[in-house]
Design a protein around this nucleic acid. Structure first.
Lengths: 327, 327
DNA sequence: CTGAAAGCGCTTACAG
DNA sequence: CTGAAAGCGCTTACAG
C-alpha cells in the first residue's frame, strides 16, 4: 500500500502538482478557479491524501514541531493542565507541541535534535550553557526556565506573587508571625525560592517579622522538626511551598496534638485534589495557567520566527486563594 | 549561518558524500579505510555537523519518532516514572519517544500526523475506531490501551494483580469482609475496573465474601457515604482504587471518629508521596514500571517494523506491598 | 490561470 | 575502496 502523494492527487484530478499544492495550502492569491479548487479538494479527500510533514519540513527548512523539554517537571495538577493548555495554544498558532522527558534520556539535549529537528525547544528548567549552545548552533532557538525564572518569565506568571498571596491571606486573618515550609529537593528550587522571596517581601510590606523558614524533605519527621522550630518562634500560621508539604505539616500537627487552624493555620499551593480530602481541608492557592500558556505560545512563535519574545504582563488573574478549613 | 550538510563535510574532508554517509552510519561492511574513517569523523566533529532528521526520514520513508498519546493520563508518580522509563527504553531501541497531550488538541488524532509523521503511535487510552483507521490508513501502526487493557497488555502488567495483592494483604491480616473504594471518573475506569475484578477473584479464591464496592468521586462527602455503606455490611478493611481515594477514606474515618486501622484498615495503590505524610501513614501497593516500560519499547519496535508484538509475561515483580500504619 | 523543473539533505543501488 | 547520480515528497520561483 504505497503512500498517496500530491502527485497522485494531481494526476487523478488532471492538474499539476503545483495546483494541488496551491489549493491545499490555501494560496488563493494565485487565482485558481473555483471549479479546479473543488476538484482538487474532492480528489485529495477521495484518495485519502495526507501531506508528508517530513517532506514539507525538508523543503521549507522549518519543522512545525515545538519540543517541550521536561526535566523533573512538577507532577502537580495545575502543571498537568498547563501542558494541555500549552498544547492547545501552540496548536492555535499552527504548530504542534510535543513533550520530551529529558530525565529519561541518555546523551541529554543534543540527542533531542537527532530525530526531531524541532522548530523551537522550550524547557521548564534552565538548560546548561553547553546544551543551549549546541541547540543554537544547529539553528534551533531555545526558551528555557519557563514558569520558573526569577523575573516574570515569558509565560507572565511571577512565582513570587504566590508567596505574597499566601502571606496576605494569613495576615488578613490576624496572623503576625508567619512560618514558611520550604523544601530541599533541587528540582523544586526554581519554584520554592521565588515563592519564599515573595512571602518575605509581603511580610516586609505589611510590617510583619521575617517569615520563619523551615526546610524539609517530603517526610513527616521533617515536618515535625519544622513544627518544633516554628513553635519556638511564636509562629501561628504557615505558608507551605505546595500542597504536599502542607499535608505533611497537617500530619505533623496531628502527631503533636496541635489544632489546625486553632494552634496553627496552614495554606498550601496548587489546589491538588488531595487538599479537599484531608481533615481539616486545606486552604490553598489555585493556579490557572490558561493565560500563561497562551502567552508562552505567542512568545514561542515569535522566537521560532527569529524575533524577540513579546513580554507578557504578570498574569495576576492566574492565582486565587481557595479558602478551606485549615486557615 | 547556513546549515552544515553532509556534502560540506565531504568537500572539507576531500571525499564523497557517500563515504561520509557510510562512515557516519557505521556501514563498515563497505570496507572504508581506517584513515578515511577517522578523517571524516574528525571533520564532521570540527564543522559541528548534525544530520538532518527530516531529510533522513524522507529518504528512508520512516521517521524515528514514537508518539505517545496521553489522554487524561494518570498524574500519579509511578506513571511519571513510567514515562521516563519508556523514554529511556525507546531510546535504547534507537528511536525517540515524545508525548502528546491529546486532550489539549482540537481535531484529535488525525491532527497528530499533520506535523509529526511518527514511526508508530502509542496510546494509554483505547482509541476510537475511526481514529485508529485513519492512522493505519496513513501507514502509521498503532498500539493502544497501554497499561490499561483487560488482558495482560503489551507492557505485561496486569492491573488485576494489583487488586489481588491488596486483598491478599488484608486477608493475611485477618480481615474477612473487605470493601473496595472505586471511583466514577471515566478516565480511571481502565484501571479501576480490572483492579476491582482482581480483588473479586482473590476474595473468591480465599473463600471470602464478595468485596463491598462503594463508588465515589474524589470528595470527603463521597467517602463518608462509602463508610456508611461499608459499616452496614461489616466491612473491616478497604482496598482503595488509588492513594488519593485512600486519603479520602482516611479523612472520612477521622470525621466519623473511626480508628484506622483499628476500626477500619486501608490499603491504597501507587505509593504516592502523600501516603507517607498522612497520619496514620498509608499502606499501599508500590508500582515499578521499569520492566513494563522495556517490554513496551520492545513491542513498539516490533510493531513499527510491521511484525506482531512479542507478548510479555506478567511482570509480577513490578508490584510490592508497602506496609505502613493504616493496616 | 496552470505546468515543468529545481532543490531541500539524505541514503543507497550502481558503476568504476 | 570510492564517487556520481537518483530519488524520497514537497513548495515555489519561473515560464507560459
Amino acid at each position: 500500500m504505497a503512500r498517496v502523494t500530491s502527485l497522485d492527487v494531481a494526476r487523478e484530478a488532471g492538474v499539476s502538482q503545483t495546483t494541488v499544492s496551491f489549493v491545499l495550502n490555501g494560496k488563493n492569491e494565485f487565482g485558481i478557479s473555483e471549479t479546479t479548487r473543488r476538484l482538487v479538494l474532492e480528489t485529495a479527500q477521495r484518495l485519502g491524501y495526507a501531506p508528508s510533514a517530513v517532506a514539507r519540513a525538508l523543503r521549507s527548512g522549518r519543522s512545525q514541531v515545538v519540543v517541550f523539554l521536561l526535566t523533573d517537571a512538577p507532577v502537580t495538577e495545575p502543571f498537568g493542565r498547563f501542558k494541555r493548555e500549552v498544547t492547545a495554544a501552540v496548536q492555535a498558532q499552527g504548530l504542534t507541541c510535543v513533550f520530551l522527558e529529558l530525565s529519561g534520556l541518555a546523551g541529554g539535549v543534543s540527542a533531542v535534535c537527532q530525530h526531531l529537528d524541532p522548530a523551537i525547544v522550550v524547557s521548564t528548567t534552565v538548560l546548561a550553557e553547553v546544551d543551549k549552545q549546541a541547540l543554537v548552533r544547529s539553528g534551533v532557538p531555545v526558551i528555557d526556565g519557563v514558569l520558573g525564572s526569577e523575573d516574570a518569565s515569558v509565560a507572565g506568571l511571577d512565582q513570587r506573587e504566590i508567596g505574597r498571596m499566601q502571606v496576605r491571606h494569613l495576615a488578613d486573618r490576624g496572623h503576625r508571625v508567619i512560618g514558611f515550609a520550604a523544601v530541599d529537593a533541587p528540582q523544586d528550587q526554581p519554584f520554592c525560592l521565588p515563592r519564599l522571596e515573595g512571602a518575605r517581601e509581603q511580610c516586609l510590606l505589611l510590617g510583619l517579622a521575617e517569615p520563619v523558614v523551615a526546610r524539609m524533605d517530603y517526610s513527616l519527621d521533617g515536618a515535625v522538626g519544622a513544627l518544633v522550630r516554628w513553635g519556638g518562634n511564636g509562629v501561628s500560621a504557615v505558608a507551605a511551598f505546595n500542597d504536599v508539604v502542607a499535608v505533611a505539616v497537617l500530619g505533623a500537627c496531628r502527631m503533636r496534638g496541635l489544632d489546625v487552624p486553632g494552634d496553627l493555620a496552614i495554606i498550601g499551593v496548587d489546589n491538588d485534589s488531595v487538599g479537599r480530602l484531608t481533615v481539616p481541608t486545606l486552604t490553598t492557592i489555585g493556579i490557572d495557567l490558561t493565560v500563561p500558556a497562551q502567552s508562552l505560545a505567542r512568545a514561542l512563535v515569535d522566537v521560532a520566527e527569529g524575533n524577540a519574545a513579546r513580554s507578557s504582563a504578570v498574569a495576576a488573574q492566574a492565582l486565587t486563594v481557595i479558602h478551606r478549613a485549615s486557615s
